[in-house]
Design a protein around this nucleic acid. Structure first.
Length: 447
RNA sequence: GUGCCUAUGGUGUAGCGGCAACACGACGCUCUGUGGCAGCGUUGUCGAGGGUUCGAAUCCCUCUAGGCACCCCA
């Protein structure tokens, strides 16, 4: 072992990073838009804790599931409780529903949220250990229109942000009546082809046959084409429900694509499942040349979904409460920021100051210090660099920001209670007494 | 958890065995009375540790971190 090691610089934990003003402007734009639309549709805000009893998540997801076993941040408190950093919001909202007595609210209860979630996995493109989501939940309603509203709001948010080529992939995975039957059918089909399956799929067949439909191995994709499809095995009620959802989407002219192979990992999902993508106009050509195969008749979406969700009518029962039908979904906010930047969509605009305060000398500095407050009270955004004393430097900064007026206070002005207003574009100046200043600036900015 | 790639000022890069270089940014000074300029300076133990060598940013090994993909997916 080395005798002397350089002092280690402390870095942010793996998969977690600072979000700086550049990205936050995008984040704010997304949140502003999402809130506006969600609130229009009658959704109420909710903020749930970042920590919960680990069991809240492990019970619905399964103690032995990979997510709970490996990806959840859990720890013991000093008091001995087993807590977890929240990996998702849905279970929290179910908990909040019963804990906060929402069963006495007018139904359906419609909620939206945004915030950080945590999962301990290897970071890669669009996947971090701390990531932010915006989500919607509608509790206490089975009507297919509620599914459609959730999807519509997600669609609208992206549309209003300026995204084009938004694609909703949608499927119904049945309910607890018909899905087990389908699963068995699917497993039977694949058992016969066992020797043709890839290594992973052989394992999937035992653990979660639905996941076989997700496999990207070419040989498995071929097998998938002839596999039994969920849509043919839906019970009548599920079929009617799914048809209803699609009719509302048609009515709203929301572009969607039936994807019979879209599945979600957990058993508590039932009926509607959906994911939202942005179609990538460049990638089909690229992929075609890479693969050199014919296999590409469907348009290629980007690899990662911007959002997804579905119906989970059975979740509340798993948590030990009365059955409460529910549907919801969430956006990955980092992923949307990434796509907005890639496609050149605009972040939130921040008003730039159009006036800049410049001071020379200690008396003037103090005058400037209090003048800032007078301007703030008048809601005139004003830039400053009070910590600088050099006139040229300050003018330089003012010029760089691109303000219209510089307010210059020097020794002389501080003494006589005046201010120089300098028009930065024209290079003209005017000396005004301080009691006329606000008026003059307001008039000047109007032009 | 597995595999592949990467690591040089704040940022983006060059150097590929022989003096660490360039651009931009930031900051300071020239500069306490007038801006976008200019000049000068500062911003580095080349991710860390070890090895090969007369000599390592450069070659080798280990570690760490990051990226990408797999696995898995909330």
């Amino acid at each position: 072992m080395p005798k002397k090691t350089k002092k280690e610089i402390i870095r942010s934990p793996k998969g977690m990073h600072d979000m700086l003003s550049g990205d936050i402007r995008y984040l704010e734009r997304i949140i502003d838009m999402a809130k506006e639309i969600a609130e229009f549709y009658g959704f109420l805000p909710i903020q749930t804790p970042h920590l919960e009893h680990a069991e809240l998540f492990s019970r619905p997801l399964g103690e032995m599931s990979e997510v709970v076993e490996k990806q959840m941040y859990t720890f013991r408190t000093k008091g001995g409780d087993l807590l977890a950093l929240r990996p998702e919001a849905t279970a929290q909202i179910m908990r909040a529903y019963s804990e906060s007595g929402m069963n006495s609210w007018p139904h359906p209860v419609k909620l939206f949220y945004y915030g950080s979630f945590f999962r301990h996995e290897n970071p890669q493109k669009g996947r971090f250990r701390e990531f932010r989501q915006f989500g919607l939940e509608t509790l206490g309603e089975t009507d297919p229109v509620t599914d459609a509203i959730i999807i519509k709001i997600f669609y609208l948010i992206l549309h209003e942000l300026g995204f084009e080529n938004i694609l909703i992939r949608i499927n119904s995975i049945g309910d607890k009546e018909c899905r087990p039957y389908y699963k068995k059918e699917l497993a039977n089909y694949y058992k016969k082809k066992f020797n043709y399956l890839c290594k992973d799929c052989k394992r999937r067949l035992k653990e979660n046959p639905l996941r076989l439909l997700d496999c990207k191995e070419e040989s498995c994709i071929e097998l998938k084409a002839k596999a039994p499809q969920m849509i043919d095995h839906l019970c009548d009620e599920c079929k009617t429900h799914f048809k209803g959802v699609l009719e509302f989407l048609d009515e709203a002219e929301i572009p969607y694509m039936l994807d019979n192979y879209l599945v979600r990992g957990f058993d508590y999902y039932g009926r509607t499942v959906f994911e939202i993508f942005i179609e990538n106009s460049e990638s089909p050509a690229k992929e075609a040349s890479n693969e050199g195969k014919e296999n590409n008749h469907e348009k290629a979406p980007i690899a990662i979904a911007l959002g997804g969700g579905g119906r989970y009518d059975e979740l509340m029962a798993i948590l030990g409460e009365k059955i409460l039908p529910a549907v919801g979904g969430a956006f990955g906010l980092e992923r949307i920021i990434f796509e907005m930047k890639r496609l050149g969509l605009q972040p939130r605009r921040v008003a730039q100051p159009r006036v800049f305060l410049i001071q020379i000398g200690s008396t003037a500095k103090k005058r400037g210090f209090s003048l800032m407050e007078e301007l703030r009270e008048e809601r005139i955004p004003v830039g400053e660099s009070l910590s600088r004393d050099n006139l040229k430097t300050q003018l330089n900064i003012a010029a760089k920001i691109g303000v219209r007026f510089a307010l210059i206070i020097g020794q002389k002005e501080a003494m006589e209670g005046s201010v120089i207003i300098r028009n930065m574009d024209e290079g003209t100046q005017e000396v005004v007494m301080q009691n006329k200043l606000i008026e003059k600036i307001k008039a000047g900015l109007k032009k």
